[in-house]
Amino acid sequence: MSIDLKTVKHISKLSRISLDDKKAEKLASDLNAIFSFIEKLNKLDTSKTEPLTSIAETTLKLRKDEIKSGNIREEVLKNSPNKNKDFFVVPKVVE
């Protein structure tokens, strides 16, 4: 299989990373090399194998419904590259 430029552009759109044509071409060739290496997996029959989602063989621990955080607006906004007193500020979203 081979990953073409169109696919690379589509993935870049999905990942919200802009790419110029030169970078896209380089990436297409890198991805092809990596995926031809990954294709090795196809040799393996896994039709009877259950996927392993979590290596920790335990169940989810539950937390009590208690309020222990919040009221840290200043702290939450502190690192934002664009904010005002109350909000994070982003360029206008056009619906």
Binding site: N79, S80, P81, N82, F88, V90, P91, K92, V93, V94
Partner: peptide, 12 residues
């Protein structure tokens, strides 16, 4: 949005 580097753009 919340932290780190931002490069300004025409829209979100």
């Amino acid at each position: 949005v919340k932290y780190g580097f931002r490069s300004e753009g025409n829209n979100l």
